[in-house]
């Protein structure tokens, strides 16, 4: 096979393996589906309470805030379906020593590790999130303009890259710098904050969620783009931020593997 096609084909193969595995546990489909519905309603509860008394908070009315939550649910589906399973797997492989086999394969180790495992049933979350997005725009009584859709799509892609980079970076750091295997859980807990538009937080909180932990990049800005409320500079800054984080994560990964091969026993 040609070099250009090699990685897409490997990805397809890994996906097929995950799908085959998932098919062995078909009953999970029902359980996961019910759990998804449960958690989405759980997430909506504070929003409903808040907007029952206030028509708008920090410039966000109910349907617009619903756009943020909808995209948040999609993103979390991607996180738990396509990113987290593999990364939890690395920690386990390092513990058992099976990580050695990954390093000895003639393909990029970050690619192999990032695509090692998928949780296909999480597609339910992704679909559910898009349903919320549709409901939100139905309540707004309009469809997004074509330009907004394009900008939204671009920023959503940037959001997925940001999320992936953060998670890979944390996993690399966790077996290189701090030697802790539960850092991804911390990141997961922090990610829950991304379900709120960043503008509802003030002062230090907003700074923290925009620049230190780029939750705003992941949900608020893509939602604003879909709603046609973002300016070009912010949009470009988001894309630049995503690229910078991706490069940073790559460097961290290379450093971590180099350290693994010089320090582990």
């Amino acid at each position: 096979m040609t070099a250009a096609l090699r990685y897409p084909r490997l990805l397809a193969l890994q996906l097929r393996v995950s799908l085959t595995t998932a098919m062995q546990y078909r009953a999970d489909f029902v359980v996961e589906g019910l759990m998804s519905v449960y958690w989405v309603s759980w997430n909506l509860l504070p929003l409903l309470i808040l907007y029952a008394d206030r028509p708008s908070v920090a410039g966000w009315d109910f349907p617009s805030a619903l756009v943020v939550i909808g995209w948040f649910v999609v993103l979390r589906g991607i996180l738990e379906g396509a990113i987290n399973p593999s990364l939890v797997d690395i920690v386990e492989r390092i513990r058992t020593g099976a990580f050695d086999y990954v390093l000895l394969k003639p393909a990029d180790s970050q690619f192999l590790i990032s695509t090692a495992r998928f949780a296909p049933w999480r597609i339910i979350d992704v679909i559910g999130g898009f349903v919320i997005l549709v409901i939100a725009f139905a309540r707004l009584g309009r469809t997004p303009a074509v330009g907004d859709l394009a900008a939204g799509g671009l920023l959503m892609l940037a959001a997925v890259i940001v999320m992936y980079a953060l998670w890979v970076g944390v996993v690399a750091a966790s077996f290189w710098v701090v030697r802790l295997d539960n850092l991804t859980y911390l990141l997961g807990a922090l990610f829950d904050t991304a379900r709120w538009p960043v503008q509802v937080f003030r002062g230090a909180w907003r700074f923290l969620f925009t620049f230190v932990l780029p939750m705003a990049l992941m949900t608020t800005y893509p939602a604003m783009a879909l709603l046609g409320r973002i300016d070009v500079t912010t949009a470009l800054a988001c894309v630049a931020g995503a690229l910078a984080l991706a490069i940073g994560a790559r460097l961290l990964w290379i450093g971590a593997v180099r350290n693994y091969t010089s320090a582990s026993s």
């Binding site: 393996v17 099976a98 050695d100 086999y101 000895l104």
Partner: peptide, 14 residues
Amino acid sequence: TLVMGQKQQLLWDL
């Protein structure tokens, strides 16, 4: 190739 008797590379569920 490296084979480690105590570490497996086969996918467990498949």
